[in-house]
Amino acid sequence: MMSRRMASLFSLSSRPQVLFRLAISVNRPVCHRNFGLTAVALNRQTKDDDLFSSAILSGNSESAASVSTTGPKAKSRDAATRREQQFYELVEYMTNRTGRKRAVKAGQVRQSAWLRLFQLANSSEQLEMVAEMFPRWRDSGKEFRPIHAEAFVRRCEELKCPALALKVFGDHSKYGLGLSSLFAARHMLHSVYAQSPLSDSMTVAALFGVYKLPPVSSDLAACSMLYSACLKDKSANARVVGKALYEELKKQVQDNAPVKAPQESAIRARYAEKPNIWFLDALKTIEKVHKKTGREWKWIRYWTAEREWRPRNTFTPSQPAATAQHA
């Protein structure tokens, strides 16, 4: 009976609030976050992209013009100094031109300025400073786009501060940056499932529902990562959630032809390839754990090994194998 209730958490009609409450009881308390969401509008506001200082973006300041030629280390220090200066100049530029009362009335900030600022941030502290500027964007009557959610999650993982992404997306009423992209949600789960406590993964799973994304169980990459997170946790809740995820993951894996991850580094670096790479990595982890603990694992072998895949339930006694069709 308990497992049936848990399984319902991952159905299309499940309530994300229930899943979030479950996260609170796993491993450690989850910080209470304000999920008072406003509507996430994704319309493109091309009028907002009017003016932005190219001098700020290119870093053409007099103090950063000279480049030391004394050696690689000195050049590296100079580059770091220029980058930090560009960061704070851009922070000041955007702060003065956003908010309810702008210090500088002339000109507007482009949407692309946020992407530039994410890249210039070189520490978790700097990225948190950027996040504290998010409310000014909404106060200016502007809205973030899915590309901003993706870039912010990616930078949080690169700077090893996934907790910042959890805080920002968990408090939409304050920050105004919505988890409006399935790519961003997958990436967010990827940044926490292997190393962070299970409660963080469960919080991300809850955000799938809060932001009206497809349920975790319906997405192979997300489902495999969350199930892998459950396997490394020893709590009773993890076993119940894992059982519900296992049934759905096994069904999808058996019913779909395997996808192979690209081997070329240039292709693997493409953002569009990441979900398949994350999915296959999670499956390999699941296979190792299942083998070690004596659980069923052969349903994974077509995905993790170079074996010819045959769909389930496609043969009848009177049907030749050559005419079998994929399920």
Rank of each mutant, 00 (worst) to 15 (best):
D281H: 06
E62P: 02
H190C: 08
D48L: 15
T81K: 15
K251V: 15
D50C: 09
V104K: 14
W299K: 01
F144N: 01
D78N: 09
L220P: 00
V241R: 00
R301K: 11
C31D: 12
S265I: 10
S181W: 00
E89T: 06
A106F: 05
N313F: 05
A222I: 09
A269E: 07
V26M: 08
S196G: 03
H187W: 09
V40P: 07
G178F: 01
A163N: 13
L22G: 05
E306P: 01
K234T: 11
I267G: 04
W297L: 06
H190R: 03
R239P: 00
F169M: 08
V289H: 10
S76M: 14
Q319C: 13
S181L: 05
I56K: 02
R186S: 07
W303C: 01
E62G: 10
F87K: 00
D219I: 06
I267C: 07
L249E: 02
R307G: 04
Q45D: 14
G107F: 07
L51T: 15
P72V: 09
T314S: 14
Y227K: 06
N60F: 10
A322R: 14
Y246T: 09
Q252C: 05
Y271G: 07
R44I: 12
A151P: 00
L120Y: 03
R307T: 11
I147E: 14
G99F: 10
V104G: 05
A165I: 10
K174C: 06
V168E: 05
I300Q: 04
V109F: 02
S54A: 14
R307W: 08
S112P: 01
V26P: 00
W114S: 00
M94S: 07
K291I: 13
A23K: 05
Q17K: 13
A327Y: 06
G176Q: 07
E143L: 11
G178N: 04
P197G: 03
W278S: 03
T285W: 03
W297I: 02
L90N: 03
S11G: 08
V67Y: 15
E62I: 15
V253K: 01
L283T: 14
A322C: 04
A23L: 13
R154C: 04
A79P: 08
E158N: 11
G107L: 13
N60M: 13
S76Q: 15
S112F: 12
L164A: 12
Q17M: 11
S58R: 13
T314F: 03
V91S: 07
A80C: 08
D78R: 12
A238D: 03
S181F: 01
K73T: 14
S173W: 10
L117E: 02
T314Q: 14
C161N: 11
K288F: 06
S76K: 15
K105W: 09
S123E: 01
D78H: 08
K73Q: 14
A113C: 04
Y88I: 14
P275I: 10
